[in-house]
Computed example of a mutant assay.
Amino acid sequence: MSGDKRRFGFWNPAPARHSPLEDAQGIFTGSMIAALGLTLIGSAGLVAGGIAGVAFILHYLTGYSFGLYYSALNMPFYALSLSRLGRAFTIKSFLAVGLTSLITEIQPRYLKIETLEPLWAALLAGLLLGYGLLALYRHRASLGGIGVLAVYLQDRFGWRAGLVQLAFDLVVLAAAFAVSAPFIVLCSVIGAVTLNLFLTINHRSDRYIAM
């Protein structure tokens, strides 16, 4: 039994650093899963939380690319990331944001969604984004924006990243009433709650110690 525990990493007193190859697959996988969640949100006309939510609102208002807005809005947060969380975290987050934006833009060419119920889309998207962010967080990366601030506050003060992000998400979702019907905003809120509760339960530094 003790051999199995060591084999699967339970109660390992010495955290192991991820190799560059492991980080690369983690960032790619997390970005792919997160991009699928964002595609579901866009296909259902929903609004995400955080910086992605602001990008969706601007996209709906102007018709310009979500990916372009998402990448541009994340730029100011890289300064915080660089000064507080280090160069490696910043570079990996920059790559994750760029990759997620790119995949979200090209994905409709390869994935056609004919019917999508908004509430179901919100639940699926919340879980997909949660899994994507969890993969990125565990490889010391994020999807930028509020995620950078949330990870910093968790590392600095012990505040749960999921709860920090939820507070910001609710503010952004309140602004969604300017571009979406109340039912769509309600579904978006359900998606944001699903995402952030998933992160609150599963992203804990005292449980996952690999670096």
Rank of each mutant, 00 (worst) to 15 (best):
F56K: 07
Y137D: 12
I146V: 15
L129A: 01
I201K: 14
V193L: 05
P13L: 10
T39M: 13
T115V: 14
A150S: 15
L73V: 02
S65E: 03
V189I: 15
P108K: 12
V148E: 06
L46C: 03
L21I: 06
M32K: 00
L58H: 00
L166N: 11
S142N: 02
T104E: 03
G98S: 10
G42K: 11
T62I: 06
G145T: 09
I33P: 03
G132Y: 04
S81E: 02
L186H: 00
I201M: 10
L116K: 01
L127N: 05
L170C: 08
L80V: 05
I27M: 05
S101W: 10
Y60P: 00
V151M: 11
L133T: 04
K92L: 00
F10C: 03
G37A: 01
S31Y: 03
V179H: 06
L82Y: 13
G67S: 05
W120D: 07
Y131I: 15
L143F: 09
S93G: 07
L80D: 02
S93K: 09
A175F: 12
L46K: 05
G49S: 08
G145N: 10
G191D: 06
F157Q: 10
I91D: 00
Y152S: 07
M32A: 09
R156C: 09
G9T: 01
T194Y: 07
Q165R: 08
L134M: 11
P76A: 07
Y131Q: 14
R138K: 07
F89D: 04
S43N: 13
I209T: 15
I184N: 10
T62D: 06
S71K: 04
G132T: 04
G50M: 05
R7A: 08
S2N: 14
A161C: 13
E114M: 11
A55F: 02
H139P: 07
I190G: 01
I41A: 10
D155L: 14
S43Y: 10
A44N: 03
A16C: 09
R87F: 14
L153G: 09
Y64C: 09
T115N: 14
M75H: 03
L136D: 12
V47P: 02
L173V: 07
G26E: 07
S101T: 12
T39C: 13
G26R: 08
L143D: 05
V54N: 02
D23K: 08
R140M: 01
G67W: 00
D206K: 09
F183A: 09
I106H: 10
N74P: 01
F183P: 01
P118A: 04
A175C: 13
G144D: 01
L102K: 12
H59V: 08
S2I: 13
A161I: 10
I91W: 09
G37F: 01
A72Y: 12
N12H: 14
L68Q: 05
A72I: 15
Y60Q: 09
R17L: 07
A125G: 06
F168L: 09
A175L: 15
L99M: 11
M211L: 15
L127T: 09
T100A: 14
G53P: 02
E117I: 13
A14L: 12
G162F: 12
V47F: 04
Q25M: 12
S83D: 05
G50R: 06
G158S: 10
L129H: 03
G126F: 00
A175H: 02
Y70W: 06
L119D: 08
G53H: 00
H18N: 05
M32G: 01
L38V: 10
Y131S: 14
